[in-house]
Design a binder for these strands. Structure first.
Lengths: 122, 122
DNA sequence: ACTACATGCCTAGCGACGCATAGTATGAGC
DNA sequence: GCTCATACTATGCGTCGCTAGGCATGTAGT
């Protein structure tokens, strides 16, 4: 399987409102810098999801502005500086709030379309 | 518990790319006119989803333009004319295609956020 | 008769947000 | 001294659900 990549137009729309959840969920498992977050999203989703830089970095800035994450520059020995992001407590709550909303939306979608996710064999 | 209504901003974003699926899924179960489609969406989702008219009617027009649905005016005895929509074979395929994409996206979301839908008790 | 409301359809323009694109810069491998 | 992966930033575009309007008819209340 792993099949054809998801229709990029559909994916871009599906992503709407879900980007913050994804980034926060990655950071819930530990601090990371922007580029690494992008790689991790691709890895976990088996490249079904691949955040463009023009998508990822603005989200990080917005989440930081909202206080959901905070950052500091890290200067590794003999490597380029990178901005490392850490989820805050407020960010944890925000993640929970958004996950709840997402699950409720999904439940509604399933009822309306009368589809069960477990009908499909993955 | 049907609880508080979903955050309308989140909902509007979650809806992105899903409106066509929802409408096609309703019509898969039989022809219906616009207003009835809207009511049925609200009913099935227990009012978690409520399409605005400015959302619903443009979708119907677009789906018809694409050949996914077709319509004709129905003039019931002693009632106002209404435009009744029927899903086409091409629409059935479109529905399947979009549902597959949606399910794959959801599967990716679940992997990335490391959440199982069945973790929550409904 | 008049008001109010649910039903029923339509459209123009707004705004949010993911994307495309471009720019800057360092380290590794050839 | 190339190229490529890494790493961050900024600007403007395009899509699409929503807001906010318009038009029209049947029913119920007063």
């Amino acid at each position: 399987m792993s099949s054809s990549p998801l229709d990029p137009v559909l994916t871009a729309n599906f992503l709407r409102g879900n980007t913050a959840i994804i980034v926060l969920a990655i950071l819930r498992d530990g601090p990371a810098h922007g580029y690494a977050i992008g790689s991790e999203i691709a890895r976990r989703s088996e490249h079904t999801l691949e955040f463009k830089q023009g998508t990822l970095y603005p989200i990080l800035h917005e989440l930081e502005r909202d206080g959901s994450i905070c950052s500091e520059w890290e200067i590794p020995n003999g490597d380029r500086p990178r901005r490392v992001y850490t989820i805050t407590e407020s960010g944890q709550r925000e993640l929970e709030r958004r996950m709840e909303a997402w699950q409720r939306f999904n439940a509604a979608m399933i009822r309306v379309t009368a589809v069960r996710l477990d009908e499909q064999t993955g």
